[in-house]
Design a protein around this nucleic acid. Sequence first.
DNA 1: CCTGAAAGATCGGGCGA
DNA 2: TCGCCCGATCTTTCAGG
Lengths: 173, 173
Amino acid sequence: MAHAPGPLDELDRKIIAALTANARTSFAEIGTAIGLSATAVKRRVDRMRETGVITGFTATVRPAALGWRTEAYIEVYCDGAAPPRRIAEVVRRYPEITAAMTVSGGADALLHVRATDVEHFEEVLERIRTESFIRKTISYMVLSHLIPDSPEAGAGSSAVQGYGLDEPGSPTR
Amino acid sequence: MAHAPGPLDELDRKIIAALTANARTSFAEIGTAIGLSATAVKRRVDRMRETGVITGFTATVRPAALGWRTEAYIEVYCDGAAPPRRIAEVVRRYPEITAAMTVSGGADALLHVRATDVEHFEEVLERIRTESFIRKTISYMVLSHLIPDSPEAGAGSSAVQGYGLDEPGSPTR
DNA sequence: CCTGAAAGATCGGGCGA
DNA sequence: TCGCCCGATCTTTCAGG
């Protein structure tokens, strides 16, 4: 939680590369790969967590396997003074909203939404549109991913995920 | 790599929740938490990796700490027949493009881009705009994230990340 | 499908260079 | 900062219900 990132050397970067490739790689294995002892690797990892460079370790899951089969981005246009704080409060109430940010350009905010299916998405969209300060929305349904593994992880400062128990109970079947 | 996801029971979901919260949680700990032996937990995790439910384990990193301080979404409008395959090929050549997808709505594709700074982003954008089939682009610079931890991980079927050694050599300093 | 046992690897703290 | 040492814990395979 400290905040003194301090420059990372090449060893730190290699450690990060190893851990992003596989978060469960042992410190010993990383160590032999980069010419350091397991202890030294662990210390560096601890320090990077301390300073907020590494914000966590997470399993990546195929959302469809958990029942989230629909994905969309929503541009949000707000009334006059749209205080980001207000938007943030509202947005946090939706488990379907997995990312939200203010943006420059036409829209005030951009939301990333996951839903079980199109019906569910429509329901979420309608709920969002009734929020007091929202003037207009434009939705982009995601059709297909062009990059097999779209990282995007750590877009904010991710540490905990936890989409999985929120809503859908129907696996791939 | 097999593909027969087969329904997940509640135990599987709890294991996923534990591993997304912290990918380095030991099987033993997960086991005691959900009332299973470490062996049983491992077997279930192995199976879920096998069937593609869990696609990998990754460290989440604060991009700014690695030198990626600028983030944007780009709507791409293509000429006439815009074959997704063609777009995918091109898009894969850009290390700065961390996610790309085809979308319904006005635009043909939506790109997520990370750059070291605004100058770098402008340079990337200009390169993208010279691609043969692109007619028009609209950029949204990300100003601030409204959800502290925007998961988004596993948007596709993530297993490896690896942004970190591609370009920027300048840490936080 | 599960548990339990056992061998080897890993973790994590302490200590000295 | 590092590497080495060591007890506790974890991983992984195997046998058995």
